[in-house]
């Protein structure tokens, strides 16, 4: 069975073609880091696969089916900066939003839903902040709330857009522990990542992306000096030499 299969995908952003000829097949239970320079199309790739951004061509199948039929099994963590943290709501409420699809139309979150959300917050070490207004949380805490919201969805495949950007060390550890736990529970996770130094520690698979896929495979096979330089261009110094 294939978790996610992408064939001949291409997309443009404001008339610039940012993705072309993207083909890959994701192994179930893998934890993939998507890396590439700014403007490589990492976020766009996630959005196109989730049909949040139009594609020009190509086919994306989830669990050998379409996204529409498997939406419940796919979770998405947008970039933290994509929402207004001054929105009048608290942490628990944001986590509950992860359940809105499951709760369905015309129904309000039940007591059970709230317990699920609290549990997810607790897993991210945020139980004490459930009632906290979201603008009163630090960047790392906000990111943990986003992760809790993804956990509560109980999806089988997760896409996360830069969850480790601008967070404190404790949050980074908490998030990585969570991602590894998801992986050992058999879930598949794809993470847009920016820190080349931690790629080998964090991810068992790596996708090197620069408007098309440069390489995709097991980290120890694919994450080499040559491949990274091919992805980022000659300007990047290979940190292992430094």
């Amino acid at each position: 069975m294939s978790v996610l299969k992408v064939e001949d995908l291409s997309a443009s952003y404001r008339k610039n073609k940012v993705l072309s000829d993207v083909n890959f097949n994701v192994k179930p239970g893998s934890l993939t880091g998507i890396i590439g320079p700014n403007g490589a199309g990492k976020s766009t790739l996630l959005k196109v696969m989730l049909e949040l951004h139009p594609s020009l061509s190509g086919k994306v199948s989830f669990f050998d089916s379409t996204l529409a039929k498997t939406k419940r099994r796919v979770g998405y963590v947008p970039q933290r900066g994509s929402v207004d943290w001054d929105f009048p709501t608290n942490a628990l409420d944001v986590v509950l939003m992860g359940l809105y699809g499951k709760i369905g139309w015309f129904k309000w979150p039940s007591k059970q839903d709230k317990e699920l959300a609290l549990e997810a917050l607790a897993q991210m070490g945020m139980a004490d902040y459930a009632d906290r207004q979201i603008s009163q949380l630090s960047g790392g805490q906000q990111q943990r709330v986003f992760l809790a919201r993804a956990l509560v969805q109980d999806a089988d495949l997760y896409f996360m857009d830069e969850p480790l950007v601008g967070v404190d060390a404790a949050t980074e550890t908490a998030i990585m522990t969570t991602l590894k736990r998801l992986k050992s529970a058999g879930k598949t996770v794809m993470v847009v990542h920016h820190d080349l130094l931690t790629v080998e520690d964090y991810f068992d698979h790596v996708m090197l992306l620069n408007r098309t896929i440069v390489e995709y495979g097991k980290t120890d096979e694919v994450f080499t000096k040559d491949n990274v330089q091919k992805t980022y261009g000659g300007s990047l110094r290979w940190m292992k030499e430094a």
Partner: peptide, 14 residues
Amino acid sequence: KITTFDAALAASLG
């Protein structure tokens, strides 16, 4: 509430 706060998540939830 969800389409106002986080339209991308809302869309991904269907």
